[in-house]
């Protein structure tokens, strides 16, 4: 219980500092603050995908349905954060680039992830039987793992992007005001904590659902 209150206070405090104290980046101006939501969401989209794929591989290896619960929960949360990143990104793009959507390589990548998550969940929804659902969706997940690097890393590098590079850039260092960097890192940690908390809740729900199903016979 204690750590959940801690997480709430941590995120709230960071948000207050980020909005009231942290300076604005010259070219980004007021839109600077999207940084504290957009990038952690995008980060969690990738973390959730990795987590889901890791547990898919573990399922194929160990055949333990608990891994499937983890994979499914992470995919659902990943879709949620992916939507958050896409919408906040589109709003920011409207303010900075003048259009909600223009198929910038970053937009292409996030849209691709959105497609992947929905396809994975649609596939899950169409299979009867726990074991079969777990096995086939794990296969799909591993196959998607092959496709992701190609779109996320290769395509944006092949075409020029206008997207700012605050974390990963060619110079290999972070060019950020110390306070912005502090808030940003705190948000990243806070969001990650939030993700793993939601994840544990979702997994518990799946476990209870399965137990209820067994009890019903």
């Amino acid at each position: 219980m204690g750590w959940r209150i801690g997480l709430f206070l941590w995120i709230s405090a960071t948000m207050i500092v980020a909005f009231l104290k942290a300076p604005l980046v010259a070219t980004l101006e007021e839109t600077t603050r999207v940084l504290y939501f957009h990038i952690p969401s995008a980060w969690l989209t990738v973390v959730a995908l990795g987590w889901s794929m890791l547990h898919s591989v573990l399922y194929l290896w160990k055949r333990d349905l608990r891994h499937d619960d983890q994979a499914a929960a992470a995919a659902e949360l990943g879709l949620l954060f992916c939507l958050a990143a896409t919408v906040s990104g589109a709003l920011w793009a409207k303010a900075m680039w003048g259009a909600y959507w223009n198929w910038d390589p970053r937009e292409t990548s996030i849209f691709f992830l959105l497609l992947l998550y929905t396809a994975y969940l649609a596939l899950r929804g169409s299979i009867e039987g726990d074991e079969k659902r777990a096995r086939l969706s794990a296969i799909y997940s591993v196959l998607a793992f092959v496709a992701v690097p190609f779109l996320i890393f290769v395509v944006p590098r092949m075409y020029a992007t206008l997207h700012p590079d605050p974390i990963i850039n060619d110079r290999g260092k972070v060019d950020m005001d110390p306070l912005i960097r502090w808030c940003f890192t705190a948000m990243l940690l806070g969001f990650t904590g939030l993700f793993f908390w939601l994840q544990s809740l979702r997994v518990r729900v799946s476990r209870l659902e399965r137990r209820a199903q067994l009890a019903r016979g």
Binding site: F112, L115, L116, T118, A122, L123, L151
Partner: peptide, 17 residues
Amino acid sequence: RGRGALFAGISLPLLLP
């Protein structure tokens, strides 16, 4: 269960690259 209907949606992400 869906067979044909789902195939396009599910393979599209893998075919986009």
